[in-house]
Design a protein around this nucleic acid. Structure first.
Lengths: 241, 241
DNA sequence: TGTACATCAGTGAACGCGCGTTCACTGATGTAC
DNA sequence: TGTACATCAGTGAACGCGCGTTCACTGATGTAC
C-alpha cells in the first residue's frame, strides 16, 4: 500500500484500511464554482503520476483520496477514468510545449542553435518528468485495453498532407518549423523536411525512453548526445563562410 | 472481461464468473517432470502479453486460467508475479537475438549491409510483436511500483568499460560488433563506437515505440527509414573506389 | 511378489484488498414571491 | 423583510469483481523392505 500516512492533526479517524478518507480537510466549492473541481482532479491525477511513476495509479478512488472528496463526486466532472487521463495528457502536452517555447525565447537567432536548444528542452523535459512523458505516449495501450480495435487511424493525415495529431501536434509543428528555418538559411541539406523531422523526433523519443528505462547504462551527457543525434539526422551542414 | 468462452465440450461446468476454471482439460506432469510447468507458465504469460497488448495482464490467476491449473500451483515454480515477468523478458530477449542472427546469417559480407540488415530485423521484431517489445523495457516501471528505490545502478558498467546489462546485453553487443566491423573496413568514420552504437540503438528504439504508440502517423517505409536513421548515426561513409 | 510409505504435483476454499460504479441522500446557498 | 423552494456540490453505503496469497488437503507414483 502506497498511501501516505493520514495527517492525524486533521481530526480524521480512519474507519479502517478500506475507508476512502481524505488526506486533508477540504472546503467545498462555492455555488457556481463547482467546475473548479475539474482542475483539482486533473492536478491530483498528475500528482499521482509523479509520485508513483505510472498512470496506472490514476484510479477514481486514489484521485478522490488525494483531493479529499468522495469517489463518486468525480462523475459530475469526468465520464470515467480514461477521460481524466485524457485531460492529464492535454495538460502535460501544454507543459511540454511551454517548456520548449521558453527555452527558444532565451535562444539566439541562429537556426541550428534554435533547433538544438528546442530538442534539448524536449529531452530534458522527458528526463525531468519521466512519468509525465510516459503518459503522453501510453494512450495506445489504453485503447487496446478498452477492447477498441480502432487504434489505427486515430491520428490521420490532414488535407494539407501534414499529420493531424490529436495532441502533441503543436510540439511536432515546432520541430518542423525549426528544421525548415535551417533549410531556408542553408544550414540543412534536407530535401524532405517532414521525414527528416520525423527521424529527429524518433531519436529524441528513444533517447528519453531508453535512458529512463535503463538508468544504469553509461549514457553520454544530455546536451552533447542531443547534438550527436539531431545534427546528422537534420542534415545540418557546416556553417557557411 | 476479456476471458475467452469456456469450451463447453470439455465437460466443465463453470461455477460462476468468479471461478478460476481452466479453459481446457490438462494432464498433470509425470513424476519428476514437474519442472515442465515452469515453461508452460512462461508460455502462458507470453500468450497473455500477445493477446492483451500489455504485461499488466500477466496475473497469477490469468496465467493459471490459461494453462488450466489452480493459481497456487504457480508458487512451486515462481516466487511471485515479478519472477514470471522476468522469465518472460529473458525469453523475449532470446527471440529477439535469434531473429537478428537469423537475418544476419542470410546477409552478405558487406559490413554496412550487415549493419542495416541487423537493425532492420530489430525494428521489424518490435513492430511485429509490439507487446513483447514493450515488456522488454517496462521493467523499470515495475521496479518503481514494487516500492524499490534501486532503479539506479541495476545495469552497471563492467570492468571492461562496457555496459553490463542484465538482459539484452547480447543484442547490444551484436550492434557494437557490427559497427566495429564497419570501422575496421573503413566504411564508418566513427571514433567512439560505444557512443555511436548507443545513438543508433536509441534511434531504433524510438522508431519502434513511437510507431506503435502513434500508428496513424505517416511513417516512412521501415527499411528506408532504418537506413535513414542508422547510416548517419553510425557515420557510414560512401563505399571506397 | 506384496505392501507400507514417502514424495511429488498439484487442488479448492477462503481471506482481505482496492477497484468502478450505483443509488438514495444531504445540507448549504441563492432566488422568486 | 421573510419564507418556501429549487439548485448546486457534493456524501456514504453498498454491490460485485479480480486480484495475491494462505492453508490444509489429495491422489497418483515410485521405492524400501
Amino acid at each position: 500500500v502506497n498511501r501516505p500516512a493520514v495527517a492525524s492533526d486533521a481530526g480524521v479517524a480512519p474507519a479502517g484500511p478500506l475507508a476512502d478518507r481524505p488526506s486533508a480537510r477540504r472546503r467545498r466549492n462555492a455555488r457556481g464554482e463547482g467546475a473548479r473541481l475539474s482542475d483539482e482532479i486533473v492536478s491530483a491525477a498528475l500528482a499521482l503520476i509523479d509520485r508513483t511513476g505510472t498512470d496506472e495509479a490514476v484510479t477514481l478512488r486514489a484521485v478522490a483520496r488525494q483531493i479529499g472528496i468522495a469517489a463518486p463526486s468525480i462523475y459530475a466532472h469526468f465520464a470515467d477514468r480514461h477521460a481524466i487521463l485524457q485531460a492529464v495528457v492535454i495538460r502535460i502536452f501544454g507543459q511540454l510545449v511551454e517548456t520548449i517555447e521558453t527555452s527558444l525565447s532565451a535562444a539566439g537567432d541562429d537556426p541550428v542553435e534554435r533547433l538544438t536548444v528546442g530538442c534539448t528542452a524536449y529531452v530534458e523535459f522527458g528526463l525531468a518528468h519521466p512519468a509525465r512523458y510516459d503518459a503522453l505516449f501510453s494512450q495506445r495501450r489504453i485503447a487496446v485495453l478498452a477492447g477498441a480495435a480502432d487504434s489505427r487511424d486515430r491520428i490521420p493525415v490532414g488535407p494539407d498532407g501534414l499529420p493531424r495529431m490529436q495532441f502533441g501536434a503543436e510540439a511536432f509543428a515546432t520541430l518542423l518549423d525549426g528544421l525548415e528555418a535551417c533549410v531556408r538559411s542553408g544550414r540543412s541539406a534536407s530535401t524532405d523536411v517532414l521525414t527528416d523531422a520525423t527521424a529527429v523526433w524518433v531519436a529524441l523519443h528513444g533517447a528519453v525512453t531508453l535512458r529512463v528505462a535503463i538508468p544504469g547504462f553509461p549514457w553520454p551527457d544530455t546536451a552533447s548526445f542531443v547534438r550527436q543525434l539531431v545534427l546528422p539526422l537534420a542534415r545540418v551542414t557546416a556553417p557557411g563562410p
